[in-house]
Amino acid sequence: MLHLLLFFIFAAICVAGAINLLAQKHPINSALSLIVVMGSLAVLYLLLGAEFVAALQLIVYAGAVMVLFVFVIMLLNAGVEERTEHGSRVAIVLGVPGLIIGLGIVAWVVSHLAGLDKIAIGGPTIMNGAEVFGNPQAVGRLLFLDYLLPFEVTSILILIAIMGAVVLARREE
């Protein structure tokens, strides 16, 4: 019951942040509402027993990536978004809620047909007398044993991304 209550509170914060991202005109407001979405998603990950991913969500996403975004917004001194009026206002006013509600209903119907709405999930999972599901130890063991090669490849990807960012953002002489 507490799980359901916490889910509804943080799901509501999450959706409110996502809609605020769409509604705000200034990019810094959109970035800050995205941080709200990411923070409440971290709580939902904790409800699902994914402790390691919840920590990563806060440190990497809400921390590092969003600091990068906010830094660039302030560096470029980005002002209020200028509108180029060639789109249909009716399409925006009706289309956006239609898209959101439609995709939500599709997800509900598909998961109802598949019988997924009867499966209750969340909470800590007890295996062999200890909580092992989703804690850093279990995820780290899987990451460094079964997924070692993809993990090392991501380090090369990050290295290339760093070099690419430095080369692209360099001032032309």
Binding site: H3, L4, F7, A11, C14, V15, A18, V37, L44, L47, L48, I100, L103, G104, V106, A107, W108, V110, S111, H112, L116, D117, K118, I119, A120, I121, G122, G123
Partner: peptide, 15 residues
């Protein structure tokens, strides 16, 4: 405990 479909609907709304 929360039904799985609630999470899927929230995920669809965010997407």
């Amino acid at each position: 405990m929360v039904p799985l479909s609630y999470y899927l609907v929230l995920s669809a709304i965010l997407f």
